[in-house]
Write a protein that binds this DNA or RNA. Structure first.
Length: 287
DNA sequence: TTGGTTGTTCGTTC
DNA sequence: TGAACGAACAACCA
């Protein structure tokens, strides 16, 4: 499930390969994935150069030479795969078991072919993700819906404190994943941030002490930065060109560990449902 | 086999 | 009025 760290990792990888690549052809195999409709989509992209890849929240933004942008959301199972025609050089997003064999395959919905013969594939098992072409104005309109970027210097402890002050009623975990409040935190990292701060994810915000609010703030910065450093939870060690140890998965303290021993105390990790989402925490050291 | 899983949107309810 | 909740989306897995 790509959250901020995974999307940031893909962004960095794609920037290494896609800058100044010229789009030669675009093949859309599943029409509902793209906007506008495939013929228009193709027409707007062919002969365009990709100038830069950016990220806002969990969105990837490809800036094109003609002033347009490709805006894309991977949702739960979208992947961006860059290949030189021989082998995969970059791959990011949710890992799919055998989902990247024999590319392109049944999960490949969009194929960009570049002038130099390399390709960018959009793969998506569940077909919830999308790619759309927008102009500058539409892009701005789409992006203002999101809260601050938690890793930007502008996101200070004071800004976070004011945000909590303005939203006293929600429970902390469901609040952390609200994109219009803070951009980019999803289900996995919200649980990890609560664990870091030793706070029960069901705590109502107005009951949090000053110290707990500070710890949450530090947790947001620390957990997200660590996850980026490890190339995200779904990082594939096989494909990692620099041979780094495999991703953030081994560092998860609570997510997906229900019934297992807490790594900090003698507690057993519990799984509950909050706002309809699986939530993992240690009842003993998260109060 | 049915239910759980996921991010986001949308419609409904409080 | 707006917050909060559930369903829907799709496909896989337990």
């Amino acid at each position: 499930m790509p959250e901020l760290p995974e999307v940031e990792t893909i962004k960095r990888d794609l920037n290494r390969y896609l800058r100044s690549k010229k789009i030669k052809t675009v093949e859309v195999k599943l029409a509902k994935i793209v906007k506008p409709s495939p013929p228009q989509f193709q027409k707007l992209l062919v002969d365009q150069q990709i100038e830069e890849v950016n990220r806002r929240a969990k969105l990837l933004i490809f800036r094109l030479s003609g002033g347009f942008f490709i805006l894309t959301h991977l949702k739960m199972s979208g992947q961006m795969i860059f290949t030189d025609g021989q082998k995969v050089l970059a791959k990011g997003g949710h890992l799919i078991k055998d989902g990247d064999k024999d590319l392109p395959n049944q999960y490949t919905h969009v194929i960009f072919e570049f002038a130099d013969g390399s390709h960018l594939l959009y793969n998506d098992l569940r077909q919830f993700g999308w790619l759309k072409i927008v102009d500058q104005q539409t892009l701005q309109k789409e992006l203002v819906k999101y809260g601050p970027e938690p890793l930007e210097p502008a996101f200070t402890q004071k800004v976070f404190a004011q945000l909590l002050e303005k939203n006293p009623r929600p429970k902390i975990k469901p609040f952390l994943v609200k994109q219009e409040k803070i951009a980019g935190i999803g289900n996995i990292y919200a649980d990890e941030i609560c664990f870091y701060a030793r706070i029960n994810p069901a705590r109502v915000i107005k009951t949090l002490t000053i110290k707990e609010r500070k710890d949450l703030f530090l947790g947001i910065k620390h957990i997200l930065e660590q996850a980026i450093a490890k190339r995200g939870t779904s990082a594939d060690q096989y494909v990692d060109a620099r041979g780094q140890q495999g991703g953030y998965l081994p560092y998860l303290k609570v997510y997906g560990r229900a019934g297992q021993k807490c790594k900090r105390c003698a507690g057993i990790i519990k799984k509950i449902k909050l706002a309809g989402r699986g939530t993992h925490f240690c009842p003993q050291c998260q109060r």
